[in-house]
């Protein structure tokens, strides 16, 4: 192991280099770094009174400068100049990194600044953008150009694709309302919604699929022919299914049959069989009501 021995010039060299470094820091005004270097120099050469004197001198300068800066910062704070107060407190910490008062004031200012920033941000929100219904008709001003609107839209798209339909659709509605001229954007949204509908239909969830088809058309602002064809076919299927279910329960549960046939007609107004059965069932139900008004159905 290479060991610095008696008279090893390396030790003297280290002290000399650190002494020069301390002076450079001192001259540049970095008092904290200068104090550290003088501390190390005195540690390496504790017998040298000149070094100890230098350290004491820098420490005294730090103390004076810190007091000045704290007073300056407090004065700025009192006159409401938070930027000047922040700058003064940061300067105080730069010379005196452990100063508790400067850190406390900075935290206080930053808390107020962050709270005001968030309050402003929230004030620009439109409740309906987030699926919260409201009677307010006039759109608010666009949000600040901090990427938040794009974020909200993209977040909605991601949530929707991930299966969070409610949040996704709320975001889509917001985008379409606030960007009525962005036809490409509307189409992209509508396509995504329609595609999700197709997926649900393929999984046998026809009713949910139909709702998404309707949403897609509303968001798109028009009904492309292929979509119309797909919707008509689904309506027919759903109408037939509901009609069949009504037939199954007709003899044992008339009110349930009526609900099924109402749904069948609602899905597919062209389902005349369901319409006829519904009319017939309602007449029977009416007759039964007249015969026994208190009977449970």
């Amino acid at each position: 192991m290479a060991t610095p021995g008696r008279g090893d010039p390396r030790v003297a060299g280290i002290i000399e280099r650190r002494r020069e470094l301390a002076l450079r820091y001192q001259q540049s005004g970095d008092l904290a770094a200068a104090a550290n270097e003088w501390h190390i120099v005195t540690l390496l050469d504790p017998g040298d009174a000149a070094y100890r004197q230098q350290l004491a001198s820098v420490q005294a300068a730090i103390s004076r400068r810190t007091t000045e800066l704290l007073e300056s910062g407090q004065a700025a704070l009192k006159r409401g100049d938070n930027d000047a107060a922040t700058e003064a407190m940061l300067k105080a910490l730069a010379v005196s990194p452990d100063n508790v008062e400067a850190a406390r004031v900075l935290r206080e200012i930053e808390k107020r600044r962050a709270t005001r920033l968030q309050t402003d941000r929230v004030a620009r929100l439109r409740p309906e953008d987030y699926g919260v219904p409201t009677a307010r008709a006039v759109p608010s001003a666009p949000r600040a150009p901090d990427g938040s609107r794009a974020y909200d839209f993209d977040q909605s798209m991601e949530l929707f694709r991930a299966g969070d339909t409610a949040n996704g659709l709320a975001g889509f509605r917001r985008y379409v309302e606030t960007n009525p001229s962005d036809k490409a954007g509307r189409q992209q949204i509508a396509n995504a919604v329609f595609e999700r509908g197709r997926e649900l239909e393929a999984q046998g969830q026809g009713a949910q699929a139909l709702r998404l088809y309707e949403q897609a058309i509303a968001l798109n602002g028009a009904t492309p022919a292929p979509w119309d064809t797909q919707m008509r076919a689904l309506r027919k299927t759903l109408g037939t299914d509901a009609y069949d279910k009504g037939l199954k329960v007709y003899r044992t549960d008339l009110p349930a049959a009526i609900k099924y046939w109402e749904a069948a007609v609602d899905y597919d107004p062209a389902n005349t069989a369901a319409a006829l059965k519904l009319r017939e069932a309602k007449m029977i139900d009416e007759r039964l009501r007249r015969l026994d008004p208190n009977a449970k159905r």
Binding site: T3, P4, G7, D8, V11, A12, I15, D45
Partner: peptide
């Protein structure tokens, strides 16, 4: 003083 330090290290 430097000499003292060098001596101490040695």
């Amino acid at each position: 003083s430097v000499r003292r330090l060098a001596e101490r290290v040695a």
